[in-house]
Design a protein around this nucleic acid. Structure first.
Lengths: 233, 233
DNA sequence: GTAATAGTGTCTTTGAGACAGTATTCG
DNA sequence: CGAATACTGTCTCAAAGACACTATTAC
């Protein structure tokens, strides 16, 4: 505690998830500067002197998504601190996870050459996706696992849909995140049987082009935990 | 990313838990320096230039417990970054949780006036305990909740006992952490029914002074998750 | 009508909750 | 032997898994 301590830079990085076309997608920016110029990376930036990490993350989130009021959920993931994770200097990054309903196409920020949504499985499973900058592949892996796990025992899935929403929409969130849809009947039993998970309206949704029964619309309830958890396929 | 970024100090803090006399206990040090001289605090220190946070935490752990080979478990908890959490300068702390079987009385380190184990509930529930330095009360609250939660769905309880151990010993871990013992029969059914939670030896433990049947000894298994989770009372 | 989607009901199985009963070891 | 502790068995109930069935809408 007494020794001189070397200067560190402290950054936040963000894994911002949404559901697009039935798949879990994440926001990446193409770096316009060295190092890793031209590579894709998680959005992020340095923490300012008068803000904490969460404030910095919210600020970056608004800047990167171009939304004055980001409509979703944000939480800290973990901190990455390998000495060589940034070739310029010592940077520790406090990574965060954010969830949002389908957002408009992002605008490239000041430091970014481009910004777009990527299907997470394309980045992490196949060899199709680009190599991510820094240790962002690892952060993304950890972030995806956090989201998968939290869908089991929290009501966080509702943060992926805009209100009001239907139960089939909500079920498609689980299908996208887990890779396989939960059983229809059991899913409804669990969601409707968990007090405060969703609250029904008396309105039905729009008809789809293919026809079929119109689903009832719901809003988010006040519950945050699901106990016992919903089982992952 | 381009702007100059102010210097931060990066520290690690540790909530080191053990079970002593049937209660969850945590290691605190009495600060020998300003700020908070004379207050009790979680052990910790600054991250060195060539190590990551986990290495720094292991190093501090060995220094603070005086053990060359710390026998327990260590994991990152979360990072605390309020701008005013340290009155001297901007310090972000990457907090960690460590679990260990009953350890010898600690030695006060170089920066500490004293070091000892405290019963966690005395610190957090009553008004008896001392006020902790910095935001360490909040860190301790978060750390306890992490441990409580992880006993439900992992085999982490075995890190609180030295091998070989008996099932009644292991059950007392749950009793201490949760405040109430799980039902005897159901606890055994769950532990023995979870493949790889514990592996039996063919040896029985010592007799207690009061007499009674001698319990079979077990070792840790390779399993890490308990599914479905063990329910908290 | 058919196709498509939303929603309900029910049988089976798993496993937790509660708690009574048996076994072993001490004095 | 009685007290204390370790261990086993069993009945009940809650809830997940699987899957068949009914309802509503577009064409």
């Amino acid at each position: 505690m007494t020794a001189p301590h070397p200067p560190f830079a402290v950054a936040v990085d963000l894994a911002v998830f949404t559901i697009r076309d039935g798949a879990l997608a994440v926001l990446l920016v193409e770096r316009g500067e060295e190092p890793f110029r031209g590579s894709w990376a998680l959005p992020g930036g340095f923490v300012e002197p008068d803000e904490d990490a969460e404030q910095a993350a919210w600020r970056e989130l608004r800047e990167e998504t171009g939304m004055a009021r980001f409509p979703g959920h944000l939480e800290q993931l973990r901190t990455y601190s390998a000495p060589d994770r940034d070739p310029r200097q010592r940077v520790v990054s406090i990574a965060h996870v954010a969830l949002a309903p389908d957002l408009p196409e992002p605008q490239a920020g000041t430091d970014a050459a481009d910004a777009r949504w990527w299907v997470v499985d394309d980045l992490l499973e196949g060899d199709d996706g680009p190599t991510l900058a820094f240790d962002h592949r690892q952060i993304l892996l950890d972030a995806r696992e956090r989201v998968r796990a939290k869908l089991e025992y929290t009501t966080l899935a509702t943060e992926f849909v805009a209100e009001p929403f239907t139960l089939p929409e909500l079920r498609r969130v689980y299908a996208a995140v887990w890779g396989t849809p939960p059983d229809l009947g059991n899913f409804r039993r669990k969601v409707l049987g968990t007090d405060g998970f969703v609250v029904p309206t008396d309105v039905r949704g729009e008809a789809t082009e293919a026809g079929g029964r119109r689903a009832l619309l719901y809003r988010r309830g006040t519950a945050t935990v699901v106990s016992p958890p919903m089982a992952r396929g």
